[in-house]
Amino acid sequence: MYSAYLDRFTDNDKALLLVEKLQKEFHVDINTLPIDSKAGTWFLVEIQGDEITSFQVDEGKTAEMEQEVDDRIQRLKPKKTSRFKRN
């Protein structure tokens, strides 16, 4: 099984999944994804040939990566106190 990231949905009812370990992208029908899938969801997938044959949502990795993004955003937000004097 490989770890895959749901990058985005395209205009032609397809979803773009990125499999980092293989450095490949796969276009799959939106209908084949689990119902609550959204951009940013991580999956465990099985691949045969050039097709993904099964999907399983990786809840742990999805939550972990969402938390990491939230932490980075919090670090980037400006602090309320400034070191500079105002006129």
Rank of each mutant, 00 (worst) to 15 (best):
D70V: 01
K79T: 08
I52H: 03
T41G: 02
E59N: 06
D7I: 00
A63D: 08
D11T: 08
I47R: 09
L33P: 03
S54N: 09
F26V: 04
E20L: 14
R83A: 12
R86G: 03
L22G: 04
L17T: 00
K61D: 06
V57A: 01
L22H: 05
Q67M: 07
T53G: 02
I30D: 02
R83Y: 02
F26E: 10
F84C: 04
S3H: 04
I30W: 01
M65P: 00
Q48W: 13
I47S: 02
S82K: 11
D50P: 00
P78W: 11
E20F: 08
K21Q: 07
V57G: 00
K24N: 14
E64C: 02
A15G: 09
I30E: 08
V45H: 03
E59F: 13
A63G: 01
W42D: 04
E66T: 03
D50M: 10
K14T: 14
A4P: 01
Q48R: 15
R83Q: 08
D36V: 07
I35E: 05
T10R: 15
D11P: 00
K24P: 00
I73F: 06
L22A: 11
P34S: 12
G49A: 12
D29C: 08
K38N: 04
W42P: 00
T32P: 01
A4V: 03
D71S: 04
R75Y: 12
D13S: 12
E64S: 07
Q23I: 13
D36I: 09
H27Y: 13
